[in-house]
Design a protein around this nucleic acid. Structure first.
Lengths: 168, 168
DNA sequence: TATAGAATTGACGTAAACGTAAAAGGCGCA
DNA sequence: TGCGCCTTTTACGTTTACGTCAATTCTATA
C-alpha cells in the first residue's frame, strides 16, 4: 500500500547513487556490493520492521548493528536485516539488549558456533524460567485482583440495597 | 526469633516515652492515644511488613502514609498499618503508587465511600485487562522461546553427531 | 531554484520505585 | 561516658530502551 510510494527509489536508484556519488575510488570502502544488493536506508528499515529511526541508531550505538555508510548515510544490508530480526525476536522473548549482543557477538560465519549456541541455550533456559515465574506472579495478581473486585462489588451492592443483604 | 531483641522496647516503653517526653502540653499534638495503642516505629514496621525504611519514608513522601511524630521520630498507628497493607496489595496486583494514592485519597470514614469503591472497581477492571494482556504476551514469549530452544538444540545435535542426522 | 522530505549527530528527558551514601542527633546499656 | 544501634533529612544514583527536541546538511522533485 504505502510502500508503492518509495518503490521508485528502491533497489537500482540506491545503487546508482552509490556509484555516481562514488568516493573517487571505485569500490574500496564498501566491503561488498553484495551482488544481489538489497541495501536499505534507515527510513525503509524502520518501516519494514516497525521500529523508529531512533531505535535503529540506538541499536547501532550499542553495537548491535553495523550498517555500511554512503558518506554519512546508513545503508543496511541483508545481514543487518537478519541481525535486526534476531534483536526483535530477542526482545520479544524478554532478553535485554545486552544479552542479545552477547549472543550475537559470538557468531562466527567460519565456525560451528557451538559456543554461541550453547550460550544461547543457557540464557534461554534462564529466561524461560523467568518468564514462567512472571506468569505465576501475574496469575497470582489476577486472582487477588478478581477477589478484591468481588469484595468491592459486594460492598457497593450493600450500599445500594442494604435492607435485604444485611440480614443474610 | 529476632523479634525477641526489641521486645523489651515495644508497647509500654514507647508510650512511656511519649508521655515522659511530652511536649509540655499533655495531649494536644497527638491526635489520639488510640487507647489500645499499637504504635510502631519505622524499624518495626519495616520488619513486620517486609519493606525497607527507605520504602516507608518514600511512601510518606508521596503522601501515601502519614505517621504521627514524637519529635522527629515516626510513629505508625494501626491505621497506617492498614494503609500500608492496602499499598502492598495494590502493588502486588500491579497498580502504580499514584493509582493507589488516588484511590486511598477518596476514603472518607464518615461516608459510604461509594465514589471510592467505584473508582477502585473501575481501575481494577482496567488493571485486570492489562494483566490478562500481559499474560498473553508472556505466553507468546514462552512459546516462541521454547521453539527457538528446540531449534538450537537441533543445531547443536547436528554439530555433535552430523553423520546420522544429516540424512534423515 | 525554492522547498519539502530524509538523514545526521548531540544531548537532555522519561518512567518507577526505591538504593545508597553522608552527616548528624538521640537513646539505652554496661 | 563511651559504644553501638536506631533514626532523621538531603540528595544524587540506578535501570532500560528509547522519546524528543535542536541545529544542520543533503537530496530529490516540481
Amino acid at each position: 500500500m504505502v510502500q508503492d510510494r518509495d518503490a521508485t527509489r528502491r533497489g537500482k536508484p540506491v545503487t546508482m547513487k552509490l556509484i555516481s556519488a562514488g568516493e573517487t575510488a571505485a569500490n574500496t570502502n564498501n566491503v561488498s556490493v553484495e551482488a544481489g544488493e538489497d541495501l536499505a536506508r534507515i527510513g525503509e528499515m524502520a518501516k519494514k520492521y516497525g521500529v523508529t529511526l531512533r531505535t535503529l541508531r540506538f541499536y547501532e550505538d550499542k553495537g548491535l548493528l553495523n550498517p555500511q555508510r554512503d558518506g554519512s548515510t546508513r545503508l543496511y544490508t541483508r545481514r543487518d536485516k537478519a541481525r535486526l530480526k534476531l534483536i526483535l525476536l530477542g526482545r520479544k522473548v524478554g532478553f535485554s539488549l545486552r544479552d542479545v549482543k552477547q549472543m550475537m557477538d559470538l557468531y562466527d560465519p567460519t565456525g560451528s558456533n557451538t559456543k554461541q549456541l550453547r550460550l544461547a541455550l543457557d540464557k534461554s533456559e534462564k529466561q524461560l524460567a523467568r518468564l514462567q515465574k512472571q506468569r505465576a506472579l501475574i496469575d497470582d495478581a489476577i486472582n487477588e485482583l478478581s477477589g478484591s473486585m468481588s469484595a468491592v462489588r459486594q460492598m457497593l451492592a450493600e450500599r445500594t440495597a442494604p435492607q435485604a443483604s444485611v440480614a443474610s
